[in-house]
């Protein structure tokens, strides 16, 4: 199954250009691991970057730059290229549905993650990432029980969600493994997990959510979304 909901072209452009922060980059790169179509788009945008680099107005480099550089060519390579942590496919069975680069952030086993209960049927776990320019960016895993509805809310900023396992529906849209959803302050929604199993997502938000349902407003202080 290939994803049907993708990040916007602008988000993929930012990723290719290198202006996405670490948390958004984590959500995008994990989507890329699951989406050959967007990998192709990012490859195109990287070649666009290359073409713009070739066409940029050059800036003078010091006259000794090339000699300095040539003198350094035979120096031993200072930092060895780190080898990513790869496991055999057999080990992956125990690791569950987590592709790189997310796996590198959350480690071996979903069950050893410190889950915090948010409300009945919803648990979350923080992922340690850079906090971005505003210092407010957060990346989290969200585990939603079968059929559980997330309280109606809107967003003071943006919310990216990547489905890793199971699925959810949001209005008339269906999201499955690899699907990417982007919401902002225009969105007021209440996604509901599919009935047939737990839904595991990666979410990245850059500002708090605000509950908007009639009853849920009363609970607001107790819900740590």
């Amino acid at each position: 199954m290939l994803p049907v909901h993708h990040p916007s072209l602008e988000l993929l452009l930012d990723y290719a250009a290198g202006s996405t922060g670490e948390a958004a980059g984590l959500a995008l790169a994990t989507h890329l691991a699951l989406c050959p179509e967007c990998r192709e788009v990012v490859a195109q945008f990287e070649s666009l970057g290359g073409a713009l680099l070739e066409a940029i107005e050059p800036a003078a480099v010091p006259s000794e730059a090339l000699d300095n550089l040539l003198a350094r060519l035979d120096e031993p390579v200072p930092v060895p290229v780190p080898v990513p942590d790869r496991r055999s496919p057999a080990d992956d069975a125990t690791l569950g549905p987590v592709p790189q680069p997310l796996r590198g952030y959350i480690g071996q086993d979903l069950e050893t993650i410190r889950w915090k209960r948010v409300m009945r049927g919803v648990e979350q776990a923080d992922i340690a990432v850079g906090r971005g320019r505003t210092g407010n960016v957060r990346a989290r895993l969200l585990r939603i029980g079968p059929g559980v509805r997330v309280p109606r809310h809107t967003h003071a900023g943006t919310e990216m969600t990547l489905v890793l396992a199971g699925g959810f529906s949001d209005g008339d849209k269906q999201y499955q493994r690899g699907d990417f959803s982007f919401c902002d302050r225009e969105t007021d929604h209440s996604p509901v997990a599919d009935d047939d199993g737990e839904c595991l997502c990666l979410t990245v938000i850059d500002a708090p959510l605000r509950l908007t349902g009639p009853l849920m407003r009363l609970l607001n202080p107790f819900i740590r979304f």
Binding site: T30, L32, C35, R39, P84, R86, D92, P99, Q100
Partner: peptide, 11 residues
């Protein structure tokens, strides 16, 4: 963050 082209979980 970057995907790993050798990742067994890569589609």
């Amino acid at each position: 963050p970057e995907f790993d082209p050798e990742d067994p979980a890569l589609v």
